[in-house]
Each structure stands twice: as C-alpha cells, then as structure tokens.
Amino acid sequence: MEKLSIDELEKRFQAKIDADIKIEPNDWMPEAYRKTLIRQISQHAHSEIVGMLPEGNWITRAPSLKRKAVLLAKVQDEAGHGLYLYSAAETLGMDREQSIDDLHSGKAKYSSIFNYPTLTWADMGSIGWLVDGAAIMNQVPLCRCSYGPYARAMVRVCKEESFHQRQGFEIISTLANGTPEQKAMAQESLNRWWWPALMMFGPSDKDSTHSEQSMKWKIKRVSNDDLRQQFVDVTVPQAEMIGLTVPDKDLKWNEERGHYDFGVINWDEFNQVVQGNGPCNFERIEARKKAKENGMWVREAALAFAEKRKNKIDIKIKEI
C-alpha cells in the first residue's frame, strides 16, 4: 500500500466531507477533528445527564399521575440520550468512565442552562418549552453532521425529543390558562428562563472560538447567532398566544429584516455560570459524583459476579 503524507490524507478527508460522505469510526481523520468531536459529543452527553437533575427535582412532586409519568419518561429519555452520545464518543476511543471523570473534575463542560434552579412546577414547563425547544434547534442540524455515529445518535435523539417540547408547552399553557396563581407562576418562570435559554446557543459568532473550523468539518452546520434568531422568531409568537410576556423591553418585530430584534444578552452572567459560579453548579456535580460513588460497590459486585460465573452466566431464575 502506498504511504500517503498527512497533507494528502487531510486533503482526501476534506474532499469526503465536502462531498457529504460520512466519516466512520475506523476511517482516517485528523487528530484535531477527533478531539473536537470528542469534546463536543462528551459535552453533549454530559448535558443530557446533568440535565436530568433539574427536572428530576420535581418528579416526586409532580401534581398529577399523568404529569408524573410523563416527566419520568422524559427524564429517562435524557438518560437514554446521554447513553447514545457516550456510545458515539466511545467509537472515537473516549471511554465513558474517563469522560465522566472529566465531568466530575470540571475538565469537561456541560450546557450551563442546567446550573439554574427549578423552583416551581412551572419550571418543568419552561424547560420543556424553552430549553428543549432551543436544544432541538441545535440538534436537528446535527443529524447531518459529518461523523456517522454522532449523526445516527442525533437522529434517534431528535425523534425521541419531539414529545419533550410539546409536553413542556402543554404544562406552561395549562398554567397560563389556569387560576391567577398558576398564571403568575408561569410568567415568573418565563422571566427566569428566557435569557438563560437564549444563552444556550453559545457566544455570539464573532466571539465563538471553535465555530469556523467546525463548520468546515460539518460538525456544526448552522451558526450560533442564526440559531438564536430562529429560536426567538418562533418562540415569541408562542408566548403571545398563551398570554405570557417575554421579559425583554427591546423585543420588537423588525419588518425590514423579517425577524425580531431583541435585547443584549448579559454575557458576563453567561461566563460566570460557565466558569462554575452559577446558582447550582456545585449541587449538580455533587449529585453526579454521589451517584457514581454510591454505585461503585454495585458495579464492582456485578463485575465480580460475572468473573466468578464466566461461561455459565445463565442465572437460574426458577419458574414459580
């Protein structure tokens, strides 16, 4: 076999990407591509897992049997999505345990939205409606991402997520149409979640460090600012329809642009939260570490058992 130079390999790699041919696990890829993907997929997986906590916070207090079941199923989906994504990262040689240790040590990041607290039941509505709404906008383009296992995982995730946003909107609109107390609860929740939701799309394009190369590699397919604008444009009419007010005095339809103009995002707050100083950063990581530590003896036991009964793992469950 001819030995190709790195330059030539990179050229062929980029040609494949340009021709929309997917990259698969054992294909040659530039180290930087692999690293960027591992960072992005792990971060995405961590967001799903940490994202279970703010909503998990209300499972035991859900106000009806139906809401309890829906919320459980939704948070469970997030665990599933985390798992699909960790699996995608494993195909790049990133061990799940390693990845989780990086999360716990603070080396790996996750979406900063999950560092905000869920203080009322209405927050279950806001998270589904706004946070999942924003996430879906981010994720749909990723179904066409250049890396096969990631794209396939995202197809699965997006298919399953379609109910998440709807159940959130159903919660918030039920509240908005409910008693005055419920309506106030919905508005108060929107006030707290609106801006953090806009921050979910990441820094403005001009300040985003990874964007350009990622677009070229088709790991990222639409820019942060475009996605954010799209989100504002679809969400504002939804809020109006259920009689809630978006907490932005600069929000206004711009006829000329055909888009909403909106106020300036407080990037200081965003940076503070990303750096670990949000309202719940400590609690979120603490909860994940505790789950891992408390589960260690269970994982060890299952492994020891499998070792012992190698070749005859048919656990005998007698029929009764």
Partner: peptide, 12 residues
Amino acid sequence: HVGSLRAADSEM
C-alpha cells in the same frame, strides 16, 4: 445495529 451500552454480563 442500533448502538452500544455497558453491562457486566450478557443477561444484563
């Protein structure tokens, strides 16, 4: 093929 997961034994 749909994906992967971790388990201690085949039953699990």
